[in-house]
Design a binder for these strands. Structure first.
Lengths: 116, 116
DNA sequence: TTTGACCTTCACGCTGGCGTGAACCCCTAC
DNA sequence: GTAGGGGTTCACGCCAGCGTGAAGGTCAAA
């Protein structure tokens, strides 16, 4: 299938699909005319990518661990890949740090707003 | 005083002070040689800017409302400036939205990490 | 006079997943 | 043949507060 069809099938923009390819997350075939030619398995692959993006992984990390994630009807599940747990932990730490920053900012804002 | 002295006095980098000037938050005088020449009141002004930055206001908003904020020994306090309350409310909304996004991301990450 | 510390103005880098033209090619239907 | 709806590869824009050289002037101390 070509790119707009995969875009419709996955709910991901064609631009994003090309971006994923730039980052090494997708490697579609090519037709004689140079058009990208995606397979059915790419639909699943894009679903995996979506799940990992939504979980806060960046494309470089996804590139390393993409094959560790499966997405079936019930949501994503993990295979055992070395260092993946540690990677997820560090992402969780970064998210927690952002949480803390955000709360501090909210606190200062409240202090400003509640000040007479 | 010149820029490095103000930087030491406020704990803000000289680069940041120049940036504030670019954004119209500070307007120091100039010596004959072209050096920036800050006054004592700029120390307080920078403290106000720091408080507002820490509360999530951007430089454009700070530029509009800088004179509405005073910083004394007990922390910042507000003067009545039209639209400032509404501005602070909208900032609070944006922060809350970021919070929500962050929590959703953490939720997805947990789903990934806890999946077998 | 020569360090050396401090100042000045550009102007790119960072973080990063895309949106959005621009300029051009491919294929089908009329 | 031509219009139209795909496709392709660049490559800048975004959001924003600074960090960080680069190239060069100023000034007090030795």
């Amino acid at each position: 299938m070509q790119i707009s069809e995969l875009a419709r099938a996955t709910g991901v923009s064609a631009r994003a699909l090309r971006h994923y390819e730039d980052r090494g997350l997708l490697i579609p075939g090519r037709t004689g005319a140079g058009y990208r030619d995606y397979s059915e398995s790419d639909v699943i692959r894009v679903a995996q990518i979506k799940a990992m993006i939504a979980a806060g992984l960046n494309t470089a990390t996804i590139q390393r661990y993409l094959d560790c994630v499966r997405v079936d009807g019930h949501g994503p599940s993990l295979k055992m890949c070395p260092d993946l747990r540690a990677e997820l932990d560090s992402i969780a730490e970064r998210l927690a740090a952002k949480q803390a920053d955000l709360r501090r900012t909210q606190q200062r804002l409240n202090e400003l707003a509640s000040a007479g």
